[in-house]
Design a protein around this nucleic acid. Structure first.
Lengths: 309, 309
DNA sequence: TAAAAATACTCCATAGGTATTTTAT
DNA sequence: ATAAAATACCTATGGAGTATTTTTA
């Protein structure tokens, strides 16, 4: 017994005519004939009386066909449930976003998104990468926005944009005079980093070469926020790396120096657990984020750029 | 989407283990794995989180699996309904039986049958062959008992027994002195027949040769019953053909003369419309009839004998 | 005789098998 | 290291097609 056969039976009961029923099922008459015969054989009951013109269900067949109709109804309910599960744009979703992205990205798209999709309720939490991944896997979070790739089999990544790293420095810093700014040739000792746990810290350390964790300064601050670092840099001679979106409004200022091409960057993606099925929501969310990005970040090549994670 | 796939999904949800689920479905693990994957692909939703040990349904998968369970439940309901339809031994059924069989056969098995199957209610009507066939086709009758074969595409025949024809005659009839009694050599003029419409009339005429309808006697009676014919024969010099069961209690009497082998006979069958699905009922009815037949009729060869219909 | 259903046959998609690799604990 | 799941590859069943025959109104 196959779903096809059940559909053929219902079509035949509806049209009372093999040729018409077959057309309606987009198959040929012999195909439908054979499958109906086969089902009749399998259950051992003749469902249709072919001697009547137009044919009609047998006495025994009628209630069986009715039952078959209700089965197909349930199957269609399943299909539309699945469709809704994927295509509906309503409901409450828990979104985790890393602190080095959150304060700069959210203001860009959130208002637009909530206006466009008023039935979607986003519960946004600032979380660090590891927390987000754990929460997704535990099912306590639906969506994450963070730096990728994660290389995690169970996490699905939907890239949003590549965000360049820039150097944020005190104008009196010697680096200011450098003509070319190459990533892994920065002096390590002056690097101000975020506190442990922020993925941005690791990203910055990678960019600045392999001699990690060396700090020759007589103090070390691991701030919890980019803004904290920036403020410190303004007072000190040190420097720090900052993500593009955090300085998008001060690009021309004397605190900013961009790397020589190719600029180091990080990929920011929407991620979900593989069990999260709201396809359309993810699509619309990604779309909305991208639309509201500064134009420089919008043109994301189809292939991923060099990543520094 | 196939029923198999749905069953695999439910098995996997039940066992939370590919190998065990596959065993339970009597397939190999790769087969189950592939089919579950395929279904997931088709609907575009990952149903199971394989990273958990033991695996578990995804958030999106759980309600879908629940729905699948209810679909399979309905399908099983269908199957058991079909089973009941065929195998149940209860209900009311309309049985048509020809007059030349009815008064002799019914007393043989009816009590036994109603005792054995008290839940079956038989509404028996004496009807002639053509009426029975029409009624079956119109759905106003469920079962018929009559002489076969009918060569009708829409009627199913379940042979019961072969019933020999015997000659019933007045002891003073010249035929009494014949040593060999061969069917088509009987003198036509003395044949007493049933009235038009009885299939037995045609059967008898065939047996007695091709010169139909010739009646040289100075009277002609077409009685409505075998008993009427028999009574007439006892008073007259004529003779008639009678079916075995009508004379089973007077086989040794001087009114009976059997034909030389091979005796002409008629096949008596249970017939139904092809839409009648009560397989077990038909089987038990046939069984019961055969069991209660006189022993001479019980040994029915697997191949049909020469039929005189 | 024309339309409808059944049959004969051919083809190819795919369910299911075995063997193996990959992954996770 | 071990068990579980995924993958690769092969085979064969059977669904679906075209062409044709049979049947019945």
């Amino acid at each position: 017994m196959t779903i096809q056969q059940l559909e053929y039976v219902v079509a035949l009961d509806t049209h009372r005519h093999f040729v018409q029923a077959a057309e309606h099922c987009f198959v040929t008459q012999p195909t439908l004939t054979m499958q109906v015969q086969k089902l009749e054989q399998e259950i051992g009951i003749t469902l249709f009386d072919r001697s009547k013109k137009p044919l009609e269900p047998t006495l025994a067949g009628a209630p069986i066909i009715a039952k078959i109709r209700s089965i197909l109804l349930e199957i269609n309910q399943l299909k539309s449930f699945v469709y809704n599960e994927k295509e509906s744009l309503e409901g409450t979703y828990r979104l985790g976003i890393i602190p080095t992205v959150s304060p700069y990205l959210l203001p860009l798209f959130l208002q637009d998104f909530t206006t466009k999709y008023p039935e979607v309720n986003l519960q946004i939490r600032e979380m660090q990468t590891a927390q987000i991944i754990d929460a997704l896997k535990q099912g306590t979070l639906d969506i994450g926005i963070l730096a990728t790739p994660l290389m995690d089999q169970h996490i699905r990544e939907i890239p949003l944009y590549n965000e360049p790293f820039l150097v944020y420095l005190n104008p009196s810093n010697p680096l200011m005079r450098e003509k070319e700014l190459v990533a892994d040739q920065l002096p390590m000792e002056a690097l101000l980093l975020l506190e442990e746990g922020h993925c941005f810290r690791e990203q910055a350390l990678r960019i600045c070469g392999s001699k990690l964790e060396v700090n020759t300064r007589n103090f070390s601050l691991q701030s919890g926020s980019i803004e904290g670092l920036k403020n410190l840099v303004k007072k000190e001679v040190g420097y720090t790396l900052v993500p593009y979106l955090s300085v998008v409004d001060e690009l021309g200022s004397s605190n900013i120096k961009r790397f020589t091409q190719p600029e180091p960057s990080r990929e920011i993606s929407i991620i979900t657990h593989k069990g999260f099925a709201k396809e359309l929501l993810l699509e619309k969310l990604g779309e909305c984020v991208k639309e509201n990005l500064p134009s420089e970040l919008q043109v994301m090549g189809s292939s991923r750029r060099v990543n520094w994670r």
